[in-house]
Each structure stands twice: as structure tokens, then as C-alpha cells.
Design a binder for these strands. Structure first.
Lengths: 193, 193
DNA sequence: CACTGCATGTAACCTGTTACATGATTTC
DNA sequence: GAAATCATGTAACAGGTTACATGCAGTG
């Protein structure tokens, strides 16, 4: 039900499904990706439940839009979700399962290749979030601790993304170093002076 | 399709669905939780695809078991999955979405309560993995860098779990400190000498 | 006899993904 | 006139969750 609450939160400011998709791509992506088809479907359901209202609106540039907004009931639902405390679900990391069975690749070099690709992938993701942070810092002299409450909370989530991706990239780097050290050790053992 | 590959990897050693559930709980849980009903369903499908075989076996203690094992074809499939490189999917963190909208709770104390619960939850999870690590270290003098390859890879995944939960707990702690500092600042501003 | 643990499964449901369909408006 | 962007949707499918059903064997 998290998508529901994300939409209720986002639609405290009016927006169309198409607008929301852009927000998901730019802002929520690193903690909650969503496809347009799912957004539209969920918006209709939330409206039927009375948690959102919609009105048609002309677009400057394309076809008519349907603009949604959270109702008082929807806002109460959002608040209840927050009051219930943190909803910590288990996450699924396919790459971690892969590492678990990586011994199945018998060549040490293949294992290193895998781990380097992993490190690079997360380093890129971290950099992308750091770029967003740098832009924000450049645009607003209050960044980060002078920001108003709503934006401060949003800054917290950005900081988490950077920490999380950074932690995984550093972990991969450590694994690589440990494997390399082991390989050197084995070479030394195989050809003693 | 990661559950498929996890089962193919796990069933390089024979096991029943029930056994596998225990392994998921104890070992895979922090990167890939799975329910029994889903495990059974997937085992049957993988057998139909020729990636697993099964035989009936008596149990010492309960009803007859169905013991599965990965076939050569299944093992090749596993290896291919690893050779395709890291499969990095986006993850969903409901708690992060909650933090994003936490300004909706207007009392600063409510926000702190939320963040403290979050910190505690992840600190507990980290401790649980650290306990597993301590046990392993006590049981095997080769831990960690003298372990044979298969176990070394498994140790890598444990280390990731500890890092990941630790990073989130530290992040939450930082958020708490920043909010507390802000509150003190506001109190000082409101009542200057 | 009730309870716990062992063991396998079915059915209904919910959430999320992928592929496709439709059509307006602007730009090259 | 073709392509890109804006905009809304449908349908089929895949993956995961929850609730329930069944029955064996050992323990208190």
C-alpha cells in the first residue's frame, strides 16, 4: 500500500498522472519506482475510495489532462500511515544472491569482473544522487540545515540514498581487495623462492 | 526470476521444500525472503522445466518428504545467470517514503519518535547479523579470509547485510541529531536572553 | 487428548511489469 | 509528413502474500 500513500503525499499539490510519473523518475525513483500504468490504475482506485478528487484541465501543449488532488480524508489516511511508525519491509537484492553463489564461477578473474561491475554500478548511482545534491546546494543557500521542514525531510531521503549506494560501493570495493589479496597469496604459495 | 536461481543454487545440495524454507529464514532472509507456498510452487515449475529432479524420501520424524536436487541443466542455468553480470534492481523502501512526507506530522517530537524507532529497528537487524558473524568466527578459525571460496562468497553477503543495516542506522541517528539541534536552535531563538 | 513440529500443498488475492492502443500538438 | 512529446489508458502476465486444508509423529 505504499504507492497509495506516496500518491496521497505527492497530491497534496495537484498533479496529473503524467506529472506524477515525472516526479517518480526524478525524486522517488531511488526508493520507490513506479510505472505509468500502475500510477493511473491506482489513481482511479484512490478516487473511488474518496481519498483523491480529480478535475479535467486543458493543457497548454497537449491533450486534456486529469488533475488529481488529495482530499481531507486522503490526508488523514496519510497521517495515520506515518503515525503507525516505520514500515520496514525486507528488501530483495538479486545481486546479493548472485554473490552468494559466485563460487560457481570457477575462475577468480570472473568473480572479480562481477564484483567490479557491481562496484561501478553503485558508484554511478551514488554520483547521480550527489549531482542532485550539489545542484540543490548551489540553488539554495539554506541547504541543508536551514531548509524548511518539508524540504529537510526530503533532504534526509536524498542523504539516505547517497549513504546506501555509497555503502554498497565501498563493500564491493572491499570484497575486490580481499579477493585480490587472496590471489596474490596463492601465487606466492604456488611459486615460493 | 531470482527465486528460481536461488533455488538452483541452494539445491546443489539436496533438500526438501521445508528444508529450504529454514535456509531462507536463517541465511537468505536479509536479501531474499520467501514464503513456503511460493517455494513449493516454484520447485514444481523448475522440475517441470527439467532444472531440478526430485525423489520421495522417508523422514525420521514426520511424513514423507520430497527431496529436490539441481540437474546439470539447472546448474548451467545458474552459471549463465552469474555470467550475465550483476542484476541490480531498484529497491522499494516504504520507510523512506514515510520520511519524505514526515513533515505531515507537525509535532517535532512525533518526527523524532518515528526516526528513533527506525534507528532502533535497523540497529536490531544489524545486531542479529553480527551475532551470526560472531558465531561463525568462533566456530571456524579460518574466518573470514582463510575460508574456502564458497564460504568466502557467503561471508561477503553477510558483510553486506551488516554494512547496509549499519549505514541506515547511522543515517537515522544523524537525522535525529540534526533535528534535535534544530529544535535547540529554535528554543534559543524564541527565548533570547 | 491436545499441542507442537514436520511436511505438502491449494486458492484467492494484491502488486507490479510489459506490451500495446489511441490520439493531440509541436517541431523539423 | 514524420518524429517527438504530451497524455490517458487496457490487457495479459509474473511474482509474491495470506489464508486455509490436510495429515503424520512424538511429547506432556
Amino acid at each position: 500500500m505504499s504507492l497509495d500513500h506516496l500518491l496521497l503525499g505527492a497530491l497534496r499539490e495537484p498533479a496529473s498522472g503524467y506529472d506524477l510519473k515525472a516526479t517518480f523518475e526524478q525524486v522517488y525513483r531511488h526508493f520507490w519506482p513506479a510505472e505509468l500504468s500502475q500510477i493511473y490504475r491506482t489513481l482511479r482506485r484512490l478516487e473511488a475510495e474518496g481519498l483523491l478528487t480529480s478535475r479535467r484541465a486543458a493543457s497548454d501543449i497537449g491533450p486534456e489532462r486529469r488533475v488529481y488532488r488529495t482530499t481531507a480524508k486522503g490526508r488523514a489516511r496519510l497521517r495515520r500511515w506515518l503515525q503507525e511508525g516505520p514500515q520496514v519491509s525486507d528488501d530483495r537484492h538479486a545481486f546479493c544472491a548472485q554473490v552468494f553463489f559466485l563460487d560457481e564461477l570457477e575462475e577468480p578473474e570472473a568473480r572479480l569482473t562481477f564484483l567490479r561491475a557491481l562496484r561501478d554500478e553503485f558508484a554511478v548511482r551514488r554520483s547521480q544522487l550527489e549531482a542532485i545534491e550539489a545542484q540543490w546546494r548551489a540553488d539554495d543557500p539554506r541547504y541543508p540545515d536551514g531548509l524548511p521542514p518539508a524540504e529537510l525531510m526530503q533532504q534526509f531521503t536524498l542523504a539516505l540514498g547517497i549513504e546506501k549506494f555509497g555503502a554498497i560501493a565501498r563493500w564491493a570495493e572491499t570484497c575486490i581487495a580481499r579477493l585480490e589479496a587472496r590471489q596474490q597469496q596463492e601465487t606466492a604459495d604456488a611459486a615460493p623462492l
